[in-house]
Write a protein that binds this DNA or RNA. Structure first.
Lengths: 248, 248
DNA sequence: GGGTGTGAAGCTATTCACAGCC
DNA sequence: GGCTGTGAATAGCTTCACACCC
């Protein structure tokens, strides 16, 4: 049964989120809100107080029509003929995303990547706070990393309860990821960010998003292959035939 | 003009790739091929030689209909009533993605994250090879990291030419990213993987994909906020009104 | 019987284009 | 005149369901 749930839940790109019930914001829009927020923050720091959809879209790397459509799902926050108030819009988006509260995060796996994540400043800057560092490696346990002590894995449950952690970040090797995931879920975590190169099976109601450099590189390679090459004009079949002919 | 190109090019999710011309594989499918490849590799290691779409879909975390549709864009590589040959399919997908050749990659920015990336094994395992490490910080230059010497930024152009680098990975702070990107592009790099939390402007023909932990966390927070809370049944407007009432 | 390959249907997302308001 | 907000049109993606083949 567990399998079926997980499969069904992961119907969407990489999160198992419903694509919005009644009055819901489309998933594609949700994924862009953080982009708008970042662009607005940059503008605010530059002292800009009002921005048009063209300007903001440019800064966020989207089209203005898309931006306006996205914002229209949140409400009518602009002024016709003028644009959007930078601070006002920033606040509205923050609230929509849920960044007005702060989120305690558990980071599991303190290897090279875990270290980098623990020290990543942009983490804390927006409402996220690493509340626990966990590893299974005895050599790591007890160490100070980014101002926190690395805890053994068997403390995971109590740390999650104590700090009211709702989001878990997995930065372990692939083989350990599912086990860590199961423990996080059992302890009540319902949102997981997975850096391990593996597919996680989770029960319904748990959101998983993945960050996978290897996949991104492969997607780039796919397109790169088709840019400057003789392969460009050939179908896969033709290319295969040609390749074989050349080889043997 | 540069702006317009960049904006138009970034119409797709995060890559500036066309969604496939004649006989093209849909972008959504391309993004899943690496997932199938990984699942097939795991199966092959376990000694499995044949797999059905149900089993493979389960392993890759997608539905079987989606998997079959995706594979159908590549060709008819299965056998009705039987399934897919693991090794055969693996080879076909590898070729489609372009992993039969190997790709030289330049990694720019050797901070915490850069170190983690340089040491990431999964990098080399599939046709990607880090051919150059580059940083601007004099303290880093000359250091040995993962078997390579960190080079100064002004060698970037010659390194790219010498090693025929087509893919650049940016792991610098946000403020340095656009400059690095411009230099990479000027030196002939047409695919960029960006870890810096900023939107890159690139000319048409250059693919950019981004990996952004902060955005992923925010998307999780959005959904988390709507799971267990009184907010669940309220519209944003109602929630705002309520929040203000409580506060003041 | 079992499982792929694929048109057709349904759904989601993007783009267009313009009414409406400042 | 300028710019937002949004229905309508279009494009793209996913799911269905079954013909077809082993």
């Amino acid at each position: 049964m567990r399998r079926t749930q997980a499969a069904a839940a992961r119907a969407g790109e990489s999160s198992s989120a419903p694509s919005g019930g009644a009055r819901g914001v489309p998933e594609a829009t949700v994924a862009r809100l953080p982009l708008y927020l970042r662009a607005l923050t940059t503008l605010a720091e530059r002292g800009v107080s009002t921005v048009s959809s063209d300007q903001l879209a440019e800064a966020a790397g989207v089209t203005s029509a898309k931006l306006r459509k996205d914002l229209s799902y949140l409400g009518s926050y602009g002024t016709r003929g003028v644009g959007y108030g930078v601070d006002f819009l920033r606040h509205q988006i923050s609230r929509e995303i849920g960044l007005t509260q702060d989120w305690a995060v558990a980071l599991v796996g303190i290897g090279h990547l875990g270290h980098a994540l623990a020290n990543y400043a942009g983490f804390a800057s927006r409402g996220f706070r690493i509340a626990a560092l966990v590893d299974t490696d005895p050599a790591q346990i007890g160490k100070e990393v980014a101002g926190l002590t690395v805890e053994p894995a068997d403390r995971l449950e109590s740390l999650i309860k104590r700090h009211r952690i709702a989001i878990g970040v997995i930065a372990t090797p692939a083989r350990a990821a599912q086990g860590v995931c199961d423990r996080l879920v059992a302890a009540g975590v319902t949102s997981i960010l997975n850096f391990a190169p593996t597919v996680l099976q989770v029960p319904e109601g748990v959101d998983v998003r993945k960050v996978d450099m290897s996949i991104e590189l492969q997607i780039l390679a796919y397109h790169e292959q088709r840019k400057n090459g003789a392969t460009l004009a050939l179908t896969p079949e033709q290319a295969a035939t040609l390749a074989e002919a050349v080889r043997g």
